[in-house]
Simulated scan of single mutants.
Amino acid sequence: MDATDGPPVIKLGEQDEIAGLALSTEAHWNQTEEDWRIFLRDGVVFGIRDGARLVATAALLPYSGNNAWISMVLVSGTHRRRGLATRLVDACMETARKSGLTSWLDATPDGAKVYGPLGFTPTLQLRRLKLVNPAPSSAPAPSAATIEALCARDRRAGGFDRTALLTAFAQRPGSRIVAANGCIALVRDGRTARHIGPLFADHAADALALVGAIAASETSPLLIDAVASQSQFLDGLTASGWTIERPFQRMRFGPATNAAKETPFAVAGPEFG
């Protein structure tokens, strides 16, 4: 199929958040309506419709320092294997190229096989883990921390500024930023599970202790996207009842930007980096 065949690629607006949520829900992803609102308000979301129905999407979310994240590449089960995802990712890449942006994404293993030949370079490997039944306890909850402290640590780790994104997360009902022993993490709601991340720490043992304290003060299922190279942290999570759901490969298209000064223990999510 030629790129010009089939229904056109269009830009979506904030009025499309419910239709986007329907696609991510169909795929059993954890995004909320508020997540979609971030992409539609602060980024560029491309879509393809079949009549009035939205059947495929891809988003480009810009960050500082000429960086952008490609995510929300979704195709309804009724419209797969028609090249729709390729057309939408091409639209994201072309938009990034015209703006001089380095593009990043977190790919599934199958996705990495597609993005590699396009010129994406592998960087971090991630592992998504889930804790289905946190065990609440009477142990003291971790201390609250400030958004300024979280954003400062995030800039060190990512090399670019995501203050707007992290502030939007932190201001949602149910969100909290917690810290202990030099560690800091954000906890927020998802559609089916609460999400921990980003999480920064100086030592794996302290990161594990903070995750344990978070889990002990939660009642809903939890997700965390751990950095695979933090092997002691990853092993500690699985030993304490977390199960690995799937891997992701972080990839970059374009020149390297500001060098990261530390490696996070967990990220904000494959859709946000």
Rank of each mutant, 00 (worst) to 15 (best):
D2K: 09
T4L: 05
T4P: 00
G6L: 04
P7E: 15
L12G: 14
L12E: 11
Q15K: 03
D16H: 01
I18Y: 05
G20M: 15
G20W: 07
L21Y: 13
A22H: 11
A22T: 12
L23R: 03
S24I: 09
E34S: 10
E34H: 06
E34R: 04
R41Y: 11
G43L: 13
L54V: 00
Y63K: 07
L74P: 09
G77A: 08
H79I: 05
R82I: 06
M93V: 13
S103T: 12
G111Y: 14
Y115W: 07
G116V: 05
P122A: 11
R128Y: 09
V132M: 08
A135S: 12
A135H: 10
S137T: 15
A139L: 08
P140A: 10
A145C: 07
T146G: 10
T146K: 04
L150P: 03
G159V: 01
D161K: 04
T163Y: 00
T163I: 05
L165E: 12
F169L: 09
R172L: 14
G174N: 12
V178G: 13
I184K: 01
T192E: 13
P198E: 14
H203K: 13
A207T: 00
A209E: 11
L222V: 14
L223P: 04
D225Q: 10
A226G: 08
V227L: 11
A228D: 15
Q232G: 00
T238L: 12
S240M: 07
W242D: 14
P247V: 02
F248W: 13
R250L: 06
R250A: 14
M251C: 04
G254Q: 04
A256K: 07
A260V: 01
A268D: 08
G269D: 08
